[in-house]
Structures are given as C-alpha cells and as structure tokens.
Design a protein around this nucleic acid. Structure first.
Lengths: 189, 189, 189, 189
DNA sequence: GATGAATGAGCTTTCATTCAT
DNA sequence: AATGAATGAAAGCTCATTCAT
C-alpha cells in the first residue's frame, strides 16, 4: 500500500523552498542537496517528484505564471479616479517589494536558461501577465503606456534591489504618478 | 628577466572575455576552464593573474566602474533643447542596448555575491555613475527625476532582455520623452 | 530505506587501507583518488564517510588510540619474574615490528599536522597508552624508567626502520633487558 | 660576462632554508614556490642550481652526511671518567635538541623516498656517522651498547618531539647514565 | 513512497617544471 | 645568471543523478 501523500502539495512545498533559494543565491549556486535539506526531504524524494533540477526550475516558472493575481484586483475595485488607481498600484508594489525583487532575480536566471530549458513561451506568458495587471490598474489599454509603466516598475525594483533604500520608493513613485496622471488627463480629452 | 608581458593588458584582456561569458551564462555557470579557453591561456596562467575566480569577478566590477563615460558626453554637447537631449540619450542607450543588457545581468550576479565579495561600495559607485550620466543628459539635478529616469531605463533594458523585441524600444522611449519633456517645461516655468 | 550498509564498518575498512598507505608513503604523498582505489570505492563515497582528507587522518589517529592493547596483556599474565616479563615485552614488540614502524611513521605525520588538526589531546592519549603498556610489562611505576623504556623502544623501532636489519634486534634488546633487570634488582632491595 | 656567484654557497644557502622547511612541514607539503620565496630567489633560479625538487632533497641528505661532527669532539677531550663523558654527551644532545628533532623528521621523509631516490647508501652513512659519534662519547666499541645508546637517544628525541616537555629530558637521561655507567663498570672488570 | 549510499564527471585550485627574455 | 610568465597534469572536493533497500 502506498503512503497517502498529496502529490501536488508536496511539489508546491518544494517549489516554495526553491523560490527562496534560487532567488537569493541563483539557480547554479544552489545544490540539490541544499534543496532537499531545506525542504526536509531526501534527495531521492526530490527526484521522485521532479525529473531533475532543471525540471524544478521549470515548474517554478510555471507556478509563477499560474499564481493568482486577483489579490491585486480587490484593491482597485471601486476606484474610478486615475490618481487613486495609480496610488493603489504603487502601494501594492511597495507592499510586495521583497517578493518582486525575488521574482526579478529569478527572471534573469530563467532568461539565461532559455536555450537549454525551452521556456520562451513561459517567459512570454509571464510578460503578458505583468502587462495585464498593470493595464487593469492604470485603466488604459495604450500599449506604449503599459510598456512604459512596466519598464518603470521593473526598473524601480531593480534599482531598489541593487542600490538599496538610498533610492526613495515614495518620491520616485510620486514622480511616476504625476507624469502618468498628467498624460492620462491629456489623453482623455 | 622573465618573459615580457604587459600585466595590465593581460588582465584586461581576460576581463573582457569574462564580461561576455559571465553576462551570457552567469558567474556560477561559467567554469574556469572555459574562461581559460576563451582567453586562449591555460588555467595556470589565469591563476597567475587572478587569485581566484571570485577575484576575476571583482576585478570585472572594478573595471566597469572605471570605464569612461565620456563617450556619452560628446553626443549632447551643443544640445540645449530638452527634447533633443532626451532623444540623444535614448538613441545612446539604444545603440548600446546589447552591452547594457550584459551589464544588467552582471549586476544581478554581482548583487548576489555581495555577502561573500564585500562589494557594496563598488555597487554604490556603479549606481552613482549611472545617475551622473543621466543627470547630464536630462540637464536636471532633480533627484526624483533622475531616479525615475534610471528606473525607467533599467526597466526598459530588462523588459527588452526578457520579453524581447516584442516591446518596441522606440514607442516606449517616446512615451518617456513626452512625459519628461512635459514635466521639465512645467518645472522651468 | 537506503542501501543497507554498516556505516562504522565502512569507515573502519577505509581507515585500515589508509593506515597502510599513509604509513608507507606519507599523508601528503597519498592522493584521495589512491585511497578510493585502494578501498574499492569512488571518491564520492569517500567523502560520504569523511568530511575531507584531514578528517580521515584524524579518524585514523582516533582509531589508533582506541585499539585494544589487551592482546599484549595475555602474554605477561603469570610472569612474576622481571626478566621473564622484559623478555615477553621484547618478543611482543619484535613480533609487531612492522606494525610499529608504521605507527612511528604515522606519528611524525600526525605531529606535523598538530597546528592544523588540533590533535594535541589525541597525541597525548597515544603517549599515555604507550606508557601504560610498558608500565604493565616492566611491572614498575617509576616514571623515569617508563620514559626511559619508551625512549628505547621508540628508538629501536626507528633505528630498525631507517638502518634496517643491520641493527640486531636481539642483541640490542638483550642489552636493554640486562640493564633494566640490574636496575630493578637494585631498586627492590 | 656571467655574474660572479659562488655556486656552492648559493646551493648551501638554499639547502639551509630547505632543512627548516622540510623538517617542519614535510617534503611533500613544501612547494617549490615556497622554497624560492624563503630563499629569496625565483623558481627559475632554484632550477638553475638544482635539477628538480627531488635533487634538492637528495643534496640536503648529502649535506647532513658531510656536516662536521667535530664540534662534539671538543667537549669530551680530556674527560677520562665514564660518567663525565656520558654527561657530556647528554648535555651535547640537549643543547641541540631542536636540531635533532628536525633531523629525525627529515630522516622519516628520507626513508620514505628510498625507492624513488636511491639513497640507501646515504642513509647507511648517516647511521654510521651517528654510531661513530656515540662510540666516541661512551668510549666503548661494544656494538650492542652503541646501538642501544643510539636507540635510546633517537627514541628520546622522538618522545620529546611528539609528547613534548612532559617527558623530562634530565630524569630520563639520568636513568640512561646510571644504567650505562653500571654496565661499563661491570664490563671493564 | 522514501531513503541516503554510491557514483564518476567535473569543479576550482595548486603543483613542479620549462623557457623566452 | 636570473627572472617570473606560462603550462597542463593532477590535486582535493562537490555535483546531479541513480538505485538497492
């Protein structure tokens, strides 16, 4: 009789652990043994749930795509004013800064493996997801504005990550809000 | 007298090779043997010029800091108009996109090693350098605007790197130029 | 459950192999690959059982300390006469000459590593063990006599090792026996 | 025109440095670069004076054989009494303890290389030299007594080396003197 | 399902030695 | 004579992966 285990839960548990490890130290720098130890299982068990190390990374990216973004949506329901929406998004990003830094780090690793991992499709999906999210917040489907906003937020996260809190999240974001608000007003008219 | 070689040149030659390799594949993924082969020397020689692999990486970052940024300055000399300056910067960035993508990738690796490599100071210098460059182009010392611009460009590079040419460099940049020009006009008055 | 192996036995098996190798060729001259080959395992397995090469050496010394010395005791039980005891010890040493030469060689290696290996305590224990053994044989607790005897036997082993069978084990030992017997007689009276 | 260098002096200078290094750390553990640095020359120069690392070691042993032992002889000239001679030898050994420990360590290394270095003849010479020295001191040509004494002193040096000053040089030596004096008296009569 | 013992290729680094200068 | 740059084999060690239990 096989032990009763929730296969899906086990996989997710392992992936959560890997998210942390891969983000902080990088895919290559993290050994399978480390993952096993951090996940409180043996390496054998790890290979029972994933074909190999690459597969773990791939699954991690898939999880990132599937992750619900609805938690963001609540905060904007009922905000009709542009500035309010923008401010809501900024504080949403700010509250998840650490998580986003990790995502950013993972994305570079993921990008570097695109040859060996055949994950361009997945990467594209992640991009789409990000854009959809932003579009909802700024309430505009102007592609240039959406890409511009995505650039800004990705860059802000990068800047905060690398150069630390020397860069004021609030002041830079305010600049963004002011500029975009101004643009949206002109655009509507 | 030993074989006559220019020690500094040799080091720089190796570092140039490493810039490429580390950016494309990541610090951890690149083996010392690969570096040696790419630089056309033996591993022994590599260790003659650098204490260890980490030292190569550190030296690479130091080189990045010391690299002259004057090549950028010529393109703006004589441009007094805000829009012209912004456009000059955009095309400067565009012409060096590939290089900047590499820099961006290296920075994440470098950031991940900050504990073991004791390079926070170096990182700070790189940030300062970037900001100084931007300040010169947009002809403003408004810190928020500078950080905002840095965020935007870092993010643009990231976006182009990860999601590819799907993101139109020109259209997004135009949005940036329009917004900032508008802001600068209001600011001056 | 993993492959069933007796961890302790495996370690001891490896150590036996190392005793031979280290003694004959010296700690530094023996490579990990050689040890692996001699022990019929892979290098990976070696590192599964020991943290590193130094740890193997340390464990070897620990084993030497724990090794039972009771095999020596039987040969003296019932010998009340001084000369008989001394002769019993001499023939005990002679029968184990090869082993003792190996021990002697290992001790010098071990001594040389005392800074890096933090094994002064272990060395002291080995010394204590040797003295206890001799004390039992010569049936005396005179420290000077015990140290003197230890010196003699260590030196005899060294001399035989370096200069070979040119040095007559028997004749030199007889001299020792005569001298000590004489001393013990005077001492008792 | 070649620089005027005293070839022999240079070789001896290097060997003195190696005596120290090899004794303390062992032949295998000392690298050629270390020797060069300690001798204040380049590795190239080292190889100008010696064919290779083994040759250095071999030359070191040759030097050990040639070293004058006359410095010992002065201290016994005029001592006709047995006890006085023995005491003179003991204090001679004591005053050179550190040097002898080094010699002892080197001998084990040297012994281990006898297959590759073809130095059995040299080893035999060293042994002869030691015995001649002792014979002079104890003023006897009884081979057993000489070998016995050599064993004792080699062992004493070993014991002091490994187990440290816990072993009293003086007390153990006194035991030796008493025993041998007793023997010599009986022998003469 | 789960374990961790076992593997050997490949890692970073050091080594003795050579040789152009 | 003297240097130290250059070499590549081999060192100690880690790795992702497999498999007997």
């Amino acid at each position: 009789m096989p032990k009763i285990v929730n296969h899906k839960e086990m996989r997710e548990g392992i992936l959560m652990v890997c998210f942390e490890l891969f983000a902080r130290r990088g895919y290559e720098a993290v050994s399978v043994k480390e993952i096993a130890k951090a996940a409180n299982v043996s390496t054998g068990t790890l290979y029972h749930y994933f074909k190999n190390k690459q597969a773990i990374f791939h699954a991690l990216a898939e999880m990132a795509v599937d992750l619900d973004i609805n938690d963001a949506k609540e905060s904007i329901s009922g905000l009709s004013n542009n500035r309010d929406r923008l401010e809501a998004y900024v504080s949403f990003v700010k509250s998840r800064e650490e998580f986003m830094i990790a995502e950013m780090l993972l994305i570079t690793d993921f990008y570097r493996q695109k040859d060996v991992l055949d994950n361009s499709e997945l990467i594209a999906k992640i991009g789409q997801k990000m854009k959809t999210q932003i579009a909802g917040f700024i309430n505009s489907d102007n592609p240039a504005l959406i890409d511009f906003s995505l650039s800004f937020f990705m860059g802000l996260i990068m800047q905060r990550m690398v150069f630390g809190h020397e860069t004021s999240f609030d002041k830079v974001s305010e600049m963004y809000i002011n500029l975009v608000e101004l643009y949206l007003e002109n655009d509507e008219s």
